[in-house]
């Protein structure tokens, strides 16, 4: 299938952008100087230059002050995985509140929370749902019989029954990408840099710094699932209020 080709080729917008900025720098200053600068240039996503591919605890922080609700993440996810119509691995919830002229509009990008204690894994009768050491909760499509219990067990509605494959499906943090040190597709596509992805075990990673320094929220923390998608500046109506 064409999909695998895309994976191998890695047409990564972030890397292209980096390339562009390097070219600009080359024009401005001499080749030798620029070469030295480019070598030490802090890359836009530190994840691509992450020191380790092992011993990681992958996590995402989403800065809702930056999110403009453009749905680029939803679209890039759709194309990354050929997600059929009507179902989403990644989507954006929108909430409006107040009455004119005092109104507000908020966005909540959603995806699998990659819980430390995933309720979906607990109920799976075949062991198809597993949690990798780096925290990615994944579905083994070979083992999945399509009983749909994980879909109802997920408190975040992150799962769905794949309309054609007839197995449980959901966000897997783009494990085919992150295993090669490249950020997930939605992070790559986000024009506002609202999504920050990386390794929580690496104290120098952007996501570690954000999660340590900022006031963060996770969805439905009272359930004890320990989600690893962290929201900065979350509006309470988005996650509470009308539950879904």
């Amino acid at each position: 299938m064409g999909k695998t080709k895309v994976k191998e080729g890695m047409p990564d917008v972030a890397q292209e952008r980096k390339g562009l900025s390097r070219r600009d720098l080359l024009k401005m200053s001499g080749v030798a100087v620029a070469g030295a600068v480019a070598a030490t240039l802090p890359t836009k996503d530190a994840f691509a230059n992450a020191k380790h591919l092992t011993g990681r605890r992958l996590a995402m922080a989403i800065d809702l002050d930056k999110c403009t609700g453009c749905h680029a993440c939803s679209v890039s996810c759709k194309s990354e995985f050929d997600v059929p119509l009507g179902v989403w691995r990644s989507w954006v919830k929108v909430e409006e509140k107040g009455t004119y002229p005092n109104t507000g509009r908020f966005f909540l990008p959603r995806l699998c929370n990659h819980c430390d204690d995933p309720p979906c894994k607990k109920v799976c009768p075949t062991g198809a749902t597993g949690r990798r050491d780096d925290g990615i909760v994944k579905v083994d499509e070979k083992k999945c019989v399509g009983c749909k219990l994980c879909i109802v067990a997920c408190p975040y509605d992150a799962r769905f029954s794949h309309p054609t494959k007839k197995v449980a499906n959901k966000c897997d943090f783009c494990r085919h990408r992150v295993d090669k040190g490249v950020v997930p597709s939605c992070v790559n596509a986000c024009p506002a840099n609202a999504r920050i992805f990386g390794d929580l075990n690496d104290p120098d990673s952007d996501v570690s710094k954000l999660v340590s320094r900022k006031a963060i929220q996770t969805l439905r923390p009272e359930l004890g699932t320990e989600p690893h998608v962290f929201y900065i500046s979350a509006e309470k109506l988005l996650e509470g209020g009308e539950r879904r």
């Binding site: 179902v87 989403w88 989507w91 954006v92 919830k93 929108v94 909430e95 409006e96 509140k97 959603r110 749909k148 879909i151 109802v152 509605d157 769905f160 029954s161 109506l237 209020g241 009308e242 879904r244």
Partner: peptide, 13 residues
């Protein structure tokens, strides 16, 4: 308060 959530499915029939 208006909420637009594009995704919620009823899995068990």
């Amino acid at each position: 308060m208006t909420s637009y959530d594009i995704f919620h499915n009823i899995a068990l029939n």
